[in-house]
Design a protein around this nucleic acid. Structure first.
Length: 760
RNA sequence: GAGUCUGUAGCUCAGUCGGUCAGAGCGCUUCGUUCACAUCGAAGAGGUCAGUGGUUCGAAUCCACUCAGACUCACCA
């Protein structure tokens, strides 16, 4: 053996050996008890970050431990398309080339992104291998594989048949310039000087001591025609009287009533807010909470519709001007703050104004699924570790609204819904015409100039009116149909990930390994991801997709803050792998947190475990050296520890021998116990101290000084204790333990440590 | 604004049911080391457990409040 353990020399070699030996392939036909983890799929075009490393370290620890204990183990690897994240990465790349997504038709854009992702996909797969993850590569899945898409589409069809799918208005950021929506992340805010108009609202039948008018400040007077309510803060005693009163809408003269909501800031303006659910994000939420009507005022062309009365057909800015004029004529303006500064949303590309308005989106009714996802705790079907995270899950699921599952992005699974273009002439299409120019118009207008085929080929996106008729089908149902351009929310597909990867509904894997044993992931996605998987699992199979959920903490930077590119404190795991090795990095990270709390990147612990690898390496060397020095070799081997040997040697064994053997059993029990409780840091600690303090510092020193028969007994026991420690350590430090195992003469048929958990 | 968590040695953190819980690693100090390992060994210093009050025979642990910090969600008409 070399004098030092050189991780660079061995890690690649061992990893290759595991891969070629196909040791991690699960057998669905096996009689052994199943143990299964589905790897939370990293972004296919992404790179390994410290969170991924921790995730893999913990899961590999569980997987190797259970495999060694004799379970039929399956760990399914996969990568996610990560819809929006990938598309923005890609668009940044396009921007560098002086292009944008609006230069492409939908299909070309999709194909180009796919190519980009496939080119980058192997990097993360390679990193998973490098980490020593004992996943079953034969079952690898990508979120946009045909099988994945089939499962997701089938689920959508089932939901539709069960009456769970509907289309409804949903507030989105809409750009008139591009004729499409922008996600929240694509919106930036621009400072802008806007008139803050203080408008008088006439109180209907005021009491003697009450004012005749109340005053409301607004920057959007043009939306007044569709306002039906005003809001006050429930803590604002001075305005309580308004709750029993009505006021007149200053533009339509219709009566309006009041609601109470904490969202209202008592200090701002006059402490009274007009609520426009159709055209303001906050108001939309308030409106939903109080079940207020959503009345659209602004059209996809950026003009006011017939609800605007005198303002109809004007653009937003024209209407605003006109509204102020009308109010002035009616003498309903108290004052105007011309200097008011606010921020307006603009799209990240052109800086053009983006309007918040409601357009039809696809929704899933969640009522039934939500209840199922909450009841799992009562029956004890699901346990969350650490337990205090349960409340986050429950609170979120309880408050869950119907789920808007459509996204106006290309990179994802296209919703399998089709509109008949003759029945729905008002569908708004954005498409590149045959000469490559971007057009925004209705399908009817488009078809007057071009064939349906031409429009379809150039299409970027479409928006079908709320009442549009549609057919759900995987294939084009007829000549005159055009497919919905929206894709599913990433969580809609990743929420089915355990089902997708295990081949729901009737594969052997599904029968053997579903429900899986544990879901291990970061707590940050407990609401968005974990809850969705529970919902889909319950809905489709009647069973929770995993028995336990273990949530690890987030690895923060060394300075205690969250890692972020802008802070420049992102830790690249590759550097640590290079310097200290995968084993030290894995074990250091695992021991960084005992209870699932966030923790700072534990650099000191990684260095500590790096020293530890060298220590156990030298323990092995020294032990082999002592055995050799005592004259043992292949012809005259050192006896193995066994029941027989023990009986013969018992009378000559001394206190230290019994002690180390007892401590070995204690340590095995403790490590098992801690792993079973998901207390991984404690398990690390137990092995570390047993090997270093008990074996190296005490027992080896003792054996070193012995002679004759006593020395032989010492060496026999030492080797036995050491090899069993190696086994225990293997799930934590798979590489070095495998290397040393290969160097050791041992009484065991299996040349690999991977299937040998110690007996007590 | 709503919610969750945290405050224990110089640093990073354990401390599970209120009673051998004042702990670990790193760092620091002193000494040692041709004979496995300086990525080593031996010994040692250090904390009013954020603060105040309460419950209890007993509190780092339970409760209330205060102070400080982190994160999640929402966000100004």
């Amino acid at each position: 053996m070399d004098k030092k353990y050189d991780h660079k020399k061995y890690e690649e070699q061992i990893s290759k050996m595991w891969l070629e030996g196909d040791y991690f392939k699960a057998d669905a036909k096996s009689d052994k008890e199943p143990y299964c983890i589905v790897l939370p799929p990293p972004n296919a075009s992404g790179k390994m970050h410290t969170g991924n490393v921790l995730m893999i370290a913990i899961e590999d620890l569980l997987i190797r431990y259970k495999r060694m204990k004799g379970y039929e183990v399956l760990w399914v690897p996969g990568t996610d398309h990560a819809g929006f994240e990938t598309q923005t990465t890609f668009e940044r790349k396009l921007k560098k080339e002086g292009k944008s997504r609006f230069d492409f038709d939908r299909k070309t854009l999709y194909d180009t992104i796919m190519k980009f992702v496939l080119e980058n996909k192997s990097a993360i797969e390679e990193q998973i291998r490098q980490m020593g993850a004992s996943v079953d590569w034969s079952r690898y899945r990508f979120a946009l594989d045909k099988e994945s898409i089939d499962t997701v589409v089938n689920t959508f069809e089932k939901l539709e048949k069960d009456g769970k799918i509907y289309r409804d208005n949903y507030l989105v950021n809409y750009s008139f310039k591009w004729g499409t929506t922008f996600s929240d992340a694509e919106i930036t805010y621009k400072d802008s000087k806007t008139k803050l108009v203080y408008v008088r609202y006439k109180v209907v039948d005021p009491e003697d001591n009450q004012p005749e008018y109340i005053i409301v400040a607004t920057t959007r007077p043009e939306t007044i025609p569709v306002d039906t309510h005003l809001a006050i803060n429930p803590k604002d005693e001075s305005k309580k009287w308004l709750l029993n009163k009505k006021v007149l809408n200053p533009l339509t003269d219709k009566e309006m009533s009041f609601i109470e909501d904490n969202y209202v800031d008592v200090e701002f303006g006059t402490g009274i807010v007009k609520i426009t659910p159709a055209h303001d994000k906050a108001d939309f939420e308030v409106g939903k909470k109080h079940k207020l009507p959503i009345i659209n005022l602004i059209t996809l062309e950026g003009k006011l519709n017939e609800k605007g009365g005198e303002l109809s057909d004007l653009s937003i800015l024209e209407a605003r001007k006109k509204a102020i004029e009308i109010l002035q004529q009616k003498d309903l303006i108290e004052k105007i703050n011309e200097e008011y500064e606010n921020v307006v949303p603009v799209d990240y590309r052109s800086g053009d104004y983006v309007e918040q308005l409601v357009i039809p989106n696809w929704f899933v009714k969640v009522d039934e699924m939500r209840d199922m996802a909450l009841n799992v705790f009562e029956k004890g079907d699901l346990k969350i570790y650490p337990k205090w995270r349960e409340i986050t899950y429950k609170r979120w699921v309880e408050n869950m609204h119907d789920w808007a599952i459509s996204r106006q992005v290309v990179w994802g699974i296209q919703i399998p819904a089709w509109y008949n273009v003759d029945e729905n002439p008002e569908i708004k299409v954005s498409y590149l015409d045959p000469s490559g120019n971007l057009q925004n118009e209705t399908i009817k207008e488009a078809l007057e100039k071009y064939s349906l085929k031409e429009v379809e080929e150039g299409i970027q996106s479409l928006i079908a009116p709320a009442g549009a008729t549609y057919v759900i089908n995987t294939e084009k149902p007829g000549e005159r149909y055009i497919q919905e351009t929206d894709t599913f929310d990433t969580w809609f597909s990743s929420g089915q990930w355990p089902l997708i990867t295990l081949g729901y509904p009737d594969s052997d894997d599904f029968k053997k390994f579903y429900p899986t044993s544990v879901l291990e992931t970061g707590w940050e996605i407990i609401t968005r991801w974990v809850s969705r998987m529970v919902m889909f699992g319950m809905y489709l199979t009647g069973e929770v997709p995993f028995k336990d959920v273990y949530l690890h903490g987030i690895v923060r930077a060394i300075d205690g803050r969250k890692m972020s590119k802008s802070l420049g404190n992102v830790i690249n795991p590759e550097e640590y792998i290079e310097e200290f090795g995968v084993d030290a990095l894995r074990m250091g990270l695992i021991s960084g947190t005992a209870n699932g709390k966030d923790f700072n990147f534990p650099r000191d612990k990684i260095i500590g475990y790096r020293k530890f690898t060298n220590k156990i390496w030298n323990m092995a060397r020294f032990m082999l050296m002592m055995i050799e020095r005592e004259g043992y070799d292949e012809k005259n081997p050192l006896p193995f520890w066994s029941k027989d040997y023990k009986e013969k040697a018992e009378s000559e064994m001394i206190e230290q021998d019994d002690e180390i053997l007892n401590k070995l059993v204690e340590t095995i029990k403790e490590v098992e116990n801690k792993i079973d409780q998901y207390r991984f840091a404690d398990a690390c600690d137990a092995i570390y101290h047993f090997m270093w303090n008990e074996i190296a510092d005490k027992y080896i020193e003792d054996v070193k000084s012995r002679d004759g028969k006593s020395k032989e007994i010492g060496l026999v026991i030492l080797r036995y204790v050491y090899l069993n420690s190696l086994k225990m350590l293997h799930p934590f430090m798979p590489f070095i333990t495998e290397v040393i195992w290969g160097e050791m003469p041992r009484k065991c048929d299996n040349p690999l440590v991977i299937s040998n958990w110690p007996d007590k």
